[in-house]
Design a protein around this nucleic acid. Sequence first.
DNA 1: GTGGTCTAGACCACC
DNA 2: GTGGTCTAGACCACG
Lengths: 133, 133, 133, 133
Amino acid sequence: MILIDYRDRRPIYEQVVEKMADLMIRGILPQDSQLPSVRNLATDLAINPNTIQRAYVELERQGYIYSVKGKGSYVAENHKIREKNRQEVFKSLEVLVEKAEAAGVTMLEFQEAVIQMYGKKKKPEEGGGKQHD
Amino acid sequence: MILIDYRDRRPIYEQVVEKMADLMIRGILPQDSQLPSVRNLATDLAINPNTIQRAYVELERQGYIYSVKGKGSYVAENHKIREKNRQEVFKSLEVLVEKAEAAGVTMLEFQEAVIQMYGKKKKPEEGGGKQHD
Amino acid sequence: MILIDYRDRRPIYEQVVEKMADLMIRGILPQDSQLPSVRNLATDLAINPNTIQRAYVELERQGYIYSVKGKGSYVAENHKIREKNRQEVFKSLEVLVEKAEAAGVTMLEFQEAVIQMYGKKKKPEEGGGKQHD
Amino acid sequence: MILIDYRDRRPIYEQVVEKMADLMIRGILPQDSQLPSVRNLATDLAINPNTIQRAYVELERQGYIYSVKGKGSYVAENHKIREKNRQEVFKSLEVLVEKAEAAGVTMLEFQEAVIQMYGKKKKPEEGGGKQHD
DNA sequence: GTGGTCTAGACCACC
DNA sequence: GTGGTCTAGACCACG
């Protein structure tokens, strides 16, 4: 279902949170569908159940899932997830724009970079590759 | 000179690195000017000299400063600092654009947000400092 | 596992970095195998854990190992290590050739010396260790 | 006469030793010519006389110069200097060849690199070559 | 006085 | 248990 990268310096539970959230944002885990149980997922990923438990708690705190005692954990409503994500993007953007200005990046440069980056996701085999080296 | 936020969960040395780098990026610490000595800054911030030392080592590794044993630490060439910073901005932007697409933010929305944000930097002169989750 | 030479004027952590890197380059520590823990190695070598920690941080920064909080430190991919090492050799060679020319050593002399030296590595199994100036 | 690079992480006295030795190796400071006095050179380079003194002591220890009490310091015999330098080159080469073998660099590769590097020395963009006063 | 290294001992986050 | 951060105090090389 997901993969853990032990070379990633972030804690494992954080990786689990991010990857599970991603699955929901992309709709692979649809609204109200049941998540794998803590024990099952822990066994699958060969990591400690405590770590998964912690990830699920965090996912619930962030509003991605809701847990029903004695039954399991379920994906929250889609519009909540999407809205939450949009807000995060704009919040990050605000910080980045500040940095850009401090670094002497003009709005024009910034906008042009955005245009070039939009839609370039994945397939890094063809095309130009990195632009700002 | 700078302030440490103990509510920030990031390590102190990392905060020092960020804040000192910011002073150089904004030109408040001009090229070749001498930084406060490890011991002085440590006393000022009421933290251990080792922690400052670690921050300075990191700043040197990242190319922001250069240190001379027995003399002091000095701000590196400005053009290097600015170039390094521009690169970081575009790298962060690339990641953010990906997230934006995944979150269903259209390029138009994104661009409009950028326009509104550019130049809107507010001066946080009233008491409150930065806040972290 | 490794030995510290206290007559060596270089810092201890640097010696540790060099010696551990050497073990990986020679394949004695194979890819993905776990390194001794910071505390264990510190006890073995009778030096402070902080010093080992510093060495491991440097090894990670140079790409030789990766560390996982709560789990341990592991040897990075071999091909990266080997490639990194080859590059270092050629870089050093370039500097040395320059010096050789300045010292009036002809290319022929240089080449002959190389031929004589290749494969002449002696096994220092008899008591004596490395010596430094 | 020479220039100090404060960005260089080596101690200043070591830079002075290296640069003065280089001037002698290249014949710019001919055999038996007098070196600038400690105080003069210190003033010229705007550094502490102690630092120059230390450099001269080191140069004498290494056999590059000889000092006459009450008169000054003089460049040693050329053949000694050249011979010393040749030996250093071969000593460094021996170490490097060992590393090359450990890194999996074949003798053929090594030799080819040497051929390509010989004679490729780039000329420093230094303007005027001042002789000694 | 300056940067750089090291020790001893502590606490934290993570697994 | 592991790695990561921090403190307090010390010594060294350098200028």
